[in-house]
Design a protein around this nucleic acid. Structure first.
Length: 494
RNA sequence: GCCGCUAUGGUGUAAGUGGUUAACACGCUGCCCUCUCAAGGCAGAGACUACGGGUUCGAGUCCCGUUAGCGGUACCA
């Protein structure tokens, strides 16, 4: 029978967890869950210069928020370097790798990319140390000379593997250089490290970004040299920025960081759902899928090959990220049980310092109704604390455009206090009785009800938009409504 | 330069082994609802399926070429 599925997510902590990494983690996780397999987290921190503890924490936090917790790990690749070196030594002994005494080239002022291309263009000379007898190499090593270890890649023939997403892949050995396995300072390099670790951890399926597709041939070579069984590979299309630009941490900043979505009021399930649809489709029209549904429907066959664009606009405070992500979060906000939403809203109100303990105790029922009323028009939980501020706190601002639009009419200086007086005596104070009182008053005063309604909305919330006016009144309660109507007189005509 | 991957409306994706007017979602526009804004309902605009050749009765779907984007080509990961 088929062996048990073991997959891993192996980020390098040279940056926070970004959307591309999160999607790779998600697909590995989904694949593992679907097959009853094991999902492993391995931090590839061998590049000490660029890795940092803070980034490790950021990755862990992001994974935790998305609820993609690992079954095993986190492991740290840096703790396995001895195994990597031992593997390289074995390859040397088996004559599948060799010591290269060529001095390490020093960097110059050209950019890295230019240097790589220039070196490649010059063509490769056969390495003079490739066939150096091992005894001689060891003698030079013993004499204190430094050497890198390179893999002996066959001069001719082709490398093949069948990618689970991209299909059959071929590459001529002639196009693959004798790659360095161990630097001359003893530091193991990526291609060796991943392979050794993946063998050690019994990884059966390697699911990762497409940027590794061509180098996979090199890794297959290493597996074979090590007499290990080669896992199945599945490469995922990349996620680009608008304009098909590469998504870059430096250029695009926090907009690509997963923790940004946590901090700006996304629901983890909504974000996971959105991420799943970036490069994958269940093949049906269904787009809103719970975690369980994703696990059931996910398939590498449904992953497409072309890069997706993460469609955010830069410097747009309202549509600050991909509109579809925002829409989807709103859908989740509306569909989830209020009881689950309440603590999330509470968290935001706390962060904005407008939280009152009573909201969760004596006024919990009221709190739930207010959240219910507001969530139809919000897209993130942060909206409850910003747009929703007037509903939870008396300390709010009158928005100038709203004042200009709804509190312009000078007559309101008399009408607002007049309305306040009427409402003060309405008994009981409900949506319908408040409405009846307002409409009666507008008729008496010979003004349109709309004038009073819109003016009241701005008087009560400082805003021009929001829920139905009488719902607002009931939510705020008689006392606050009356008080705010009177207070707003000072805003009339501004 | 060389090797490789990709190419469907603004964005994300559909269109089993080639078969009528290229579908869905987001976004956009309009209408309905209405005290505003959302939500919801309805309607609509938007794609000669990157371009050029083939194969075929018939191609988004197969083949070749071109172009573009991306990846690799490192003693980075």
């Amino acid at each position: 029978m088929a062996e048990k599925v073991r997959v891993r997510f192996a980020p390098s902590p040279t940056g926070y967890l970004h959307v591309g990494g999160a999607r790779t983690a998600l697909f590995n996780w989904l694949f593992a869950r679907q097959h009853g397999g094991t999902f492993i987290l391995r931090i590839e921190d061998t590049d000490v210069q660029r890795s940092s503890e803070a980034m490790v924490q950021g990755i862990l936090e992001g994974m935790h928020w998305l609820q993609l917790d690992a079954d095993e790990g986190p492991f740290f690749q840096s703790s396995f370097v001895e195994a990597h070196r031992a593997a390289a030594r074995r390859l040397v002994e088996a004559d599948k790798a060799y010591y290269d005494f060529t001095p390490k080239e020093q960097g110059d002022d050209r950019t890295l990319k230019e240097r790589i291309r220039e070196a490649a263009r010059e063509g490769r000379e056969p390495n003079p140390y490739r066939d150096l007898p091992l005894a001689e190499a060891r003698a030079r090593l013993a004499a204190g000379e430094a050497a890198a270890i390179r893999l002996k890649v066959p001069a001719s023939g082709v490398s093949r593997f069948d990618d689970m997403v991209y299909g059959p892949q071929e590459r001529n050995y002639a196009d693959i250089e004798d790659l360095v396995l161990i630097r001359s300072d003893g530091h193991p390099l990526y291609n060796l490290s991943v392979v050794v670790d993946d063998i050690e951890m019994g990884i059966t399926h390697v699911i990762r970004g497409q940027d590794h597709l061509t180098n996979t041939h090199k890794q297959v070579l290493i597996y074979e040299a090590l007499n290990a069984s080669v896992p199945r590979f599945g490469h995922l299309p990349l996620i680009n920025a608008p304009g098909k630009e590469k998504l870059s941490k430096r250029k695009h900043g926090e907009i690509v960081s997963v923790t940004t979505y946590r901090d700006r009021g996304f629901l983890p399930d909504a974000f996971v759902n959105f991420l799943a649809l970036l490069g994958w489709s269940p093949g049906t029209d269904q787009e809103i899928m719970s975690r369980q549904e994703l696990i059931e429907k996910f398939s590498l066959d449904g992953v497409n090959k072309s890069a997706a664009i993460f469609n955010f606009k830069e410097n747009d405070p309202v549509d600050w990220t991909d509109p579809k992500a925002l829409w989807m979060n709103g859908e989740y906000l509306r569909a989830m049980p209020v009881d689950e939403l309440l603590p999330l809203v509470a968290e935001q109100l706390q962060r904005h310092r407008i939280w009152r303990e009573a909201f969760m105790t004596t006024e919990r029922e009221w709190f739930a109704r207010a959240v219910e009323l507001l969530r139809a028009r919000y897209r993130t939980t942060v909206d409850f604390a910003t747009l929703g501020r007037p509903y939870f706190s008396d300390d709010f601002e009158y928005e100038p455009p709203a004042v200009k639009k709804n509190l312009k009419d000078e007559r309101l200086k008399e009408l607002l206090p007049g309305l306040a007086e009427r409402l003060a005596t309405v008994e009981p104070f409900t949506h319908d009785t408040a409405e009846a009182a307002l409409r009666a008053y507008s008729e008496e005063q010979n003004v349109k009800a709309g004038l009073l309604i819109n003016a009241s909305r701005t008087a009560l919330t400082g805003q021009a938009v929001g829920p139905g006016m009488f719902d607002i009144m009931v939510t705020l309660g008689r006392e606050k409504s009356v008080e705010r109507l009177r207070r707003a007189v000072a805003q009339v005509g501004k």
